[in-house]
Nucleic acid binder design. Structure first.
Lengths: 149, 149
DNA sequence: CTAAACCCTCGACCTCACTCGAGGGCAAGC
DNA sequence: GCTTGCCCTCGAGTGAGGTCGAGGGTTTAG
């Protein structure tokens, strides 16, 4: 049993255009063609494509995914290279996760202010502080409209 | 005390080009200019810019950050709108975090294989399964080079 | 008074990751 | 044998998010 590009598109959520684009970028050298030149995906191909999606979803660039796939196509001898590549990607993703979590905490702090019963008062206070600072420094009041409201 | 665009660039890690680009996109309407037309950032401006960075780092589009800043410039009356925008962004980020964590787990599983003492054997086995599948289905062996190695 | 080191705008250019249309081939049903 | 619905390649186009150079004004130190 093999899958047409349309089947694969439906299973993965990637558009047919994207699949062809990935192939063009060298991400799918393992996909065989039939006599008419049509791509025929096997279950094994879907597994590899799934790995590609994991790498893409965690923010790896196409060109780096391509390097990984090139290693896979080289066979077992490239295991050390594959490992190094994934290890370094893993570190980058971890770092990014920490950043996002910290930034999300700050957004939550903002949300706490906006959700409090005295939100308008707190926001007004912040605004007045900012306006005061501009005035004190002899700058134009860029919050004109806001302080009028 | 105010900060030049260069100062702000050094403090935030954003390039001067990026800061000017953000201004052009309407993200920095609160930054005042001096008589020469130079931007003068206050401490309050840096706080707002920090919020912008939090939104950007968590993947918010420039146009949505702009919507948020537009609300801020509207004053306290827009608190409900700000809250709705951040709330929906928060949900998107949470969803994205879950996806990334799950995909990272799969990458870790790959890494476990590549790091095991019998990595080469396991990888060879996977490869042979894929090659066998192609053969069984009457497809070309796209792993030619790998299985030769 | 001049050189160095800033600052400005404007518009062109770049990368990335698609997205799409044109032009054409194949395969099944009526 | 013709329509419908797939499939293909190639190359152009899109949108987001910058990045940069040209041309020109400002500020500061010598």
């Amino acid at each position: 049993m093999t899958y047409s590009i349309k089947d694969v598109s439906e299973r993965t959520g990637l558009s047919i255009y994207t699949l062809r684009y990935y192939d063009k970028q060298g991400l799918l050298p393992f996909v065989a063609r039939n006599s008419a030149g049509y791509r025929e995906f096997t279950d094994g191909d879907l597994l590899l494509l799934h790995t590609i999606c994991c790498l893409k979803n965690t923010g790896m660039k196409i060109s780096d995914i391509r390097r990984y796939i090139d290693f896979v196509m080289e066979g077992p001898s490239s295991v050390a290279h594959r490992r190094a590549l994934l290890e370094s990607h893993r570190a980058a993703v971890q770092k990014q996760l920490v950043l996002v979590r910290n930034n999300l905490k700050e957004i939550d702090a903002k949300l706490a202010i906006y959700s409090a019963p005295d939100a308008a008062a707190k926001v007004s206070q912040e605004l007045q502080a900012a306006v005061g600072e501009k005035t004190r420094l002899g700058l134009a009041n860029t919050f004109e409209k806001a302080s009028a409201a």
